[in-house]
Amino acid sequence: MASRFSCLCLLLFFITASPAEIAGFPFESETQEQRFRDLSSELRCLVCQNQSLADSNAGLAQDLRSELYEQVLTGNSNNQIISFMTERYGDFILYKPRFAMKTLLLWLTPILLFSVGIFCLIRFSKFRNQGQQTQVSEEELQRIRALLQAEEEKQ
């Protein structure tokens, strides 16, 4: 129990540690700081590829963070900063891929699959209902009753 508690404390320490590091850059306004936070978590570190610039401690991530910091301070727009990054590192640096011709499939597949799912749901549930509504003629009913009776008598 004690070890679990200390593990939890350790985890909490790391959770609180990362924003403090981002705050290491002094900003003139809160909007600037917010933009810096948003952009550094939207951009990917190319060295440790499953971390954002905000999370990574790799040398390159630190360099790109200070590049980002300078650009936010000089008042470059988000678009300007993002194109600065993609002109050098390609779309790979974006955690959120752009909506473009080559990413069309990526963006539209969920919608496509959802519609296919809805279509199947409607189509096949209808089919099942039709299957359940079997028409039984009076003659057949009589035969069924007779069969059931025969079974009962057997028992």
């Binding site: 390159l60 790109l64 050098r88 590192y89 390609g90």
Partner: peptide
């Protein structure tokens, strides 16, 4: 290095 897109 950043200008050249160096990462490794």
């Amino acid at each position: 290095g950043i200008e050249w897109g160096a990462y490794g």
